[in-house]
Design a protein around this nucleic acid. Sequence first.
DNA 1: TGGTACCAAGCAAGCGTTCGGTCAAGGGCG
DNA 2: CGCCCTTGACCGAACGCTTGCTTGGTACCA
Lengths: 195, 195
Amino acid sequence: MTQSKSPSERRAHLVRLAGDLFAEKGFRATTVREIADAAGILSGSLYHHFDSKESIGDEILSAFLEDVLAGYREAVRDTDDPRTAIEQIVRSSTANLSRHRAALTMLQNDWNYFSGQPRFAYLRTAMKEIEQTWIEQLERGRETGQFRADLDTRLTYRLLRDILWLPTSWRSSATWSTDQIIDGLLRLLFDGIRA
Amino acid sequence: MTQSKSPSERRAHLVRLAGDLFAEKGFRATTVREIADAAGILSGSLYHHFDSKESIGDEILSAFLEDVLAGYREAVRDTDDPRTAIEQIVRSSTANLSRHRAALTMLQNDWNYFSGQPRFAYLRTAMKEIEQTWIEQLERGRETGQFRADLDTRLTYRLLRDILWLPTSWRSSATWSTDQIIDGLLRLLFDGIRA
DNA sequence: TGGTACCAAGCAAGCGTTCGGTCAAGGGCG
DNA sequence: CGCCCTTGACCGAACGCTTGCTTGGTACCA
């Protein structure tokens, strides 16, 4: 039953358990005792593996943002067509978001908490790159005439990014598959709801 | 300067102060001592006006949902055209959301906390009515041929409601006016981003 | 024998809440 | 008019509880 695991595996296992709780309740609302309970140990024993609750959060958030940025960079590198780039961004984002549900919940619930701390300064940096990427693609699409000329790119970016990040936080995600959500989103994005 | 206020005015003033803090930090993240500080009194003195922190939240949330539901009901009562109804829902919602920023932040940050308690059972009830209203209008629009036949109404509802509720939580709302956001939203909703 | 993984116990700080007491304002009453 | 007594608003201090984190010790495996 109880496989003996390597140290790094055990540590990663604890991060995953903590992440599951963060994804459900957020970072601050989750206590170290709950994390320890989920792992079947006492809260004090957690501090043999991590030096603080924050460092668990740090690991989760930085891993998430690395993956997201990698997806963004790849999407704009592989094509010159803004529509293709945006579609690729949406697809890679959705995949990353479902793999890193915890990180998203943390960003949504505890953004104020994290973004204030120097330790998490990289959050703002990453967000800036994400914003810049979106706006570049939207503006290029406007210049090529693919997108509406009266498109407010910054406003549209804010709407789109948030829309994109939302479905992940839907708890009963059993209702729709990831692909369904992507399709619904892309369709809404490009065509609207009109016939 | 310091007008002597009626008891109900003082109470309402306290609710407003608390709401401002809730809107910034969420409900749970705001302490009663912070609320008291903002009012210039001690934390214990708050309990002369309210019997608990929760009851302050209750007042804010129920007032918000009453206004929102009233807007929804009026929107569907005044017209037979689904597109007009949806447009009216969007407009009334946006107005309500900007008047009740605190309630929205509370719902977004602390939904798990509230929705679990019997006292806040009306939250789920109200959400159900909101969902039903959206879906009815979307389906009617599909039947009349105004909206795409392949529209997944439930999925679209989830996307739309969340999209609609998002911009309110943007802190630097100085960047865009309410009307700008509504227009961007309705345009995106009906027409998409394509030229 | 040394290090890893854990337990048992506890600490200080912060939380929402309670409670006895103070004090100015104001209406009733002789 | 002047006195009393109620009342609403608030203070100061504490309560019980939970939080993240620390410490000292121990079982076990290599």
